[in-house]
Amino acid sequence: MTTSQTAPAAVKILVAGGFGVGKTTLVGAVSEVAPLRTEEYLTKASVGVDDLAGIGQKDTTTVALDFGRITVSPELVVYLFGTPGQERFWFMWNDLVNGALGGVVIADTRRLDTSFASIDFFESRDIPFVVAINCFHGHNTRTAEEIRAALDLDPHVPLLIGDVRLRPFGRDVLLALVDHLMSLPAAAG
């Protein structure tokens, strides 16, 4: 296809986690624009584009996601996609998950289990990720070690605790992800 030399290149980071943990809030806190919303149709059996002939039948679901952008330089834009919390079908949105730089899993200490699926997903797809514990619902009384144990987190996965409404915290979470990516063997090659 005709390529454009003047357009910036793009990379994406996925922001996942359970229902209502603060994904959209984090995207909005670091994005240079108010979070935008888009949606896609997914067929539950198979999500290949070829299979969309089945559209209009009952095996199709709509998955919506919020996203924001950070212009890193005139040549590079980072898109942040907040994946739908209660919706397990985003896992099948191949275009969404393929080629992601990495992921952020947001968790709430009162219901850590709602973020298990996101952790499992990133691990299974070999997408590097960091965990952000969001405290906007009140004070967190658990230590990082307790949370790590409860999430059964690999020791090398960064874990940060803070308030996702605050841009400095969102920035630190994303920086922790980039540092984590830089520490991985494949990136060093």
Partner: peptide, 14 residues
């Protein structure tokens, strides 16, 4: 994975 130059650019931007 992403190359170091790209990651460094993202880090500087963040």
């Amino acid at each position: 994975g992403a190359d170091m130059g790209l990651l460094a650019a993202v880090r500087d931007g963040l």
